[in-house]
Write a protein that binds this DNA or RNA. Structure first.
Lengths: 192, 192
DNA sequence: CCCGAACCTTAGCACTGCTAGACAATCGAG
DNA sequence: CTCGATTGTCTAGCAGTGCTAAGGTTCGGG
C-alpha cells in the first residue's frame, strides 16, 4: 500500500519535472526548441513517458500556461497592493502586466498565443486562469466608470494590454515608448 | 528578347498563383494545412519550384501578409469615407478592422501573428504595411487629443483593436459583446 | 521463490521544410 | 541545320517532427 503511495508521489514529482523542464527549455530557446525528443532527453526518460502524463505536446503547453497564470496573478496582486489611489493602482497593474509578458515571453505565449487545449471564458476554465482574470478585475472594477459593467471594462483593458504586449514583442511596434503608451491608456480608459 | 519577356511574365504569373493558392488553402483549412507538398500539388508543380520563387515557407507567408495589408487598408479607407463626424469615422474604422480580422483570420495571422520575415516599424518596412498603418492614422489623428502625438495614439488604439481581435478569435474572450466593447473603446480613447 | 502486472524502451510510422543531383527542353552560335 | 550551353524542372532523399505499437525488464505481493 505504501509502495503505491510512494509511486504516486514519484509520478507527481516527475510530472512537475516535465512541466518545469518544458518551461525552462521554452524560456531559454523558444517553444520551437521544445520537442518531445529533447524534452525526454532532458528529463532522462524516453519519449513515451511524456505521453503517460500528458495526451500530447499541447497539454504540456497547457500545463506551463497554468503555471504561469498562477505566477502572473500573484505578481499582479503584489504590484497593486502598494499604491493608494485607484489611478496609481491601475498604472501599476498595467506595468506589472507588460513587465511579466516581457520577462517571460514563452510563458506568456503558452497562456495567450499558443494552443494549450485550455478552455477560456467558460465554466470549464481552469481555476488559475479564472484567478488571473480576477486579479485584473479586482483593481479595474474601481475605475470602470458609471454604467459600465466591470467585466466588460476588464476585457477591454486587458485586450489593450495584450495588444501592446504582443505587438511590441513581435517587433510590430517600435520598442521603448512603453511608458507614454501606458500613461495614455490609463488616463483615457480609467474613470475615477 | 520577347521570349525572355514572356517567360518573365509567366514566372510572375506563377508567383501570384502560389501566393493566391497559399492564401486560399490557409483561409479554408488553416495555416497548418499549408505544407510545401500540398501547395506544390495545388499549383501543379513540384516542391522545388516554390523555392525558386521564395526562400522558404516563411516568405510565402510574408507575401500573403502583404496581399492582405493592401486589401485591409483599402477596406479601412472605404469604411471611413462615409461617416461625417470624427466619432462616427473612428467607430466605423474599429468595426471595419475587427470585421476584417474575423472574416480573414488566416490572412490576419499572416500579417500579425505568424513570422513572415517582414520588417515592421522600420524604414525597411514594406510599403503595404506602412500604408495600412497610415490608413489607421489618417482617421485617428483627428481624435488623438491635445498634446498627444498622433503616432503614439494610433499605436495604442491599434494595439487595443489587435488585442480584441486576437483574444476574441482564440476564444479567450466570450464571443458576442463586440459592439459594447468597441463603443467603450471609442468613447474613452477618442477625444473630439 | 515464483508469478503477474506495472513500467519503460526500442523501433517505427507518417508527416514536415528543404535541397542535391539527374534529366530534359530550349536557346544562341557557327 | 546542328551542336554545346544554359534554363528549367523533377525525382529522390535528408534530418527532423509528434506520436504509438509491440516487446522486455523489473519488481512487489502472495
Amino acid at each position: 500500500m505504501s509502495v503505491q503511495e510512494r509511486r504516486r508521489r514519484e509520478r507527481a514529482e516527475r510530472e512537475r519535472l516535465i512541466v518545469a523542464t518544458a518551461r525552462e527549455l521554452a524560456e531559454h530557446q523558444g517553444w520551437d526548441a521544445v520537442t518531445t525528443r529533447r524534452l525526454a532527453e532532458r528529463i532522462e526518460y524516453s519519449q513515451p513517458v511524456l505521453y503517460s502524463h500528458f495526451r500530447g505536446k499541447r497539454e504540456i503547453i497547457g500545463a506551463v500556461a497554468l503555471d504561469g497564470a498562477a505566477e502572473m496573478a500573484a505578481e499582479l496582486r503584489a504590484a497593486t497592493a502598494g499604491p493608494d489611489t485607484p489611478r496609481a493602482r491601475v498604472a501599476a497593474l498595467a506595468h506589472a502586466y507588460l513587465d511579466y509578458a516581457a520577462r517571460h515571453p514563452a510563458v506568456y505565449d503558452a497562456m495567450f498565443e499558443l494552443d494549450g487545449g485550455l478552455a477560456f471564458a467558460d465554466e470549464d476554465t481552469p481555476q488559475p486562469l479564472k484567478d488571473a482574470f480576477a486579479a485584473l478585475l479586482e483593481t479595474l472594477r474601481d475605475v470602470a466608470g458609471e454604467g459600465v459593467p466591470p467585466g466588460l471594462f476588464t476585457e477591454v483593458f486587458w485586450a489593450a494590454l495584450h495588444g501592446l504586449a504582443t505587438l511590441t514583442r513581435a517587433g510590430r511596434l517600435p520598442p521603448g515608448d512603453t511608458d507614454p503608451r501606458v500613461e495614455l491608456l490609463v488616463d483615457r480608459l480609467a474613470r475615477m
